[in-house]
């Protein structure tokens, strides 16, 4: 029995690619409808029976996932044209928006490993660039951290929810894919990081920088983070399209962080000019 008005099955169109550098192609699958499906369960169904609509047996589609609760960020992909998490993309809603078919693509701003699996190392590299951590002395017992007001906690908390999913980067018109193919097969970590370090940090990292700069301990290294925000590929690359905040699944106030970073870098520049 299916709920009234639900199709018996629906089509899934997936942009597939066998390996980096290989051409991509569309493949279409028909998936029987069940209640409570999301895109992960659709992919699981396809994995269990990888046969295209025209009856070809193909390799199962590769994708990433872990928590299935929209907290780990692994399963990010482009679903019906919009970047989001597969685990929280409900089939009923997708079919209501676009009857009959669901379209899945890998994120376009990161190199594809295979099918829907992409290489998001750059996203984590950005966190290193802005030194997204608290420089505490040691892990010994030194009593509690600094006391914080409710207001401070409430300002910090939303920013700490960033799960490094990459939605904000995929949707950002200023965030461009970094092409590592010029380095060929054996790209060294140094080469790769150097290439990343010249490119746009992305909204998530700007927001993390502001998170740590707002923390009483993080403040002690605020200048380093601001310098990182002002280096090549820093905050200045942002063009205020504000897509990042519109697509962030955790509804992180990214553009507020960006504006606050704009203010902090303004003041930092002036200070540096007069203090040095």
């Amino acid at each position: 029995m299916t709920t009234s008005g639900k199709p018996a099955s629906f089509e899934v169109r997936i942009l597939r690619q066998d390996a980096p550098g290989e051409p991509s192609r569309w493949e279409r699958f028909r998936v029987p409808y069940e209640t409570d499906m999301n895109v992960i369960s659709v992919l699981q169904k396809i994995a269990a029976n990888p046969r295209t609509i025209d009856g070809r047996d193909v390799a199962p589609v590769a994708w990433e996932s872990n928590c299935l609760e929209e907290v780990c960020g692994a399963c990010t992909m482009v679903i019906n044209g919009r970047v989001r998490q597969a685990c929280s993309a409900l089939v009923d809603q997708l079919l209501a928006d676009r009857p009959g078919e669901i379209e899945l693509r890998p994120m376009s701003k990161f190199p594809v490993y295979r099918d829907l699996v992409v290489d998001r190392q750059r996203l984590f590299r950005s966190l290193v660039r802005v030194r997204a951590w608290l420089p505490i002395d040691d892990y010994s017992d030194r009593g509690p951290g600094p006391r914080q007001s409710q207001a401070e906690q409430e300002q910090a908390y939303p920013l700490t929810e960033c799960m490094s999913c990459g939605c904000c980067l995929e949707a950002c018109p200023q965030f461009q894919k970094v092409d590592l193919s010029e380095y060929g097969e054996g790209t060294s970590d140094e080469q790769r990081n150097a290439a990343f370090d010249r490119s746009f940090l992305g909204a998530h990292a700007i927001s993390q920088a502001m998170l740590f700069n707002g923390h009483p301990i993080g403040k002690t290294s605020a200048a380093e983070r601001l310098d990182a925000l002002m280096a090549e590929g820093g905050i200045q690359v942002c063009g205020n399209a504000q897509n990042c905040v519109a697509v962030c699944p955790k509804e992180i106030p990214l553009t507020t962080s960006i504006a606050r970073a704009g203010r902090a870098t303004t003041i930092h520049t002036i200070k540096k000019f007069f203090d040095h």
């Binding site: 949707a171 018109p173 399209a241």
Partner: peptide, 24 residues
């Protein structure tokens, strides 16, 4: 130069701010 460094995507993300980015 800035304009060349961006890639507008109002097709997939039809938000007001994104249109303004394009219009700018």
């Amino acid at each position: 130069l800035i304009l060349l460094g961006g890639s507008s995507n109002t097709g997939d993300y039809p938000y007001a701010e994104n249109y303004r980015y394009l219009l700018q």
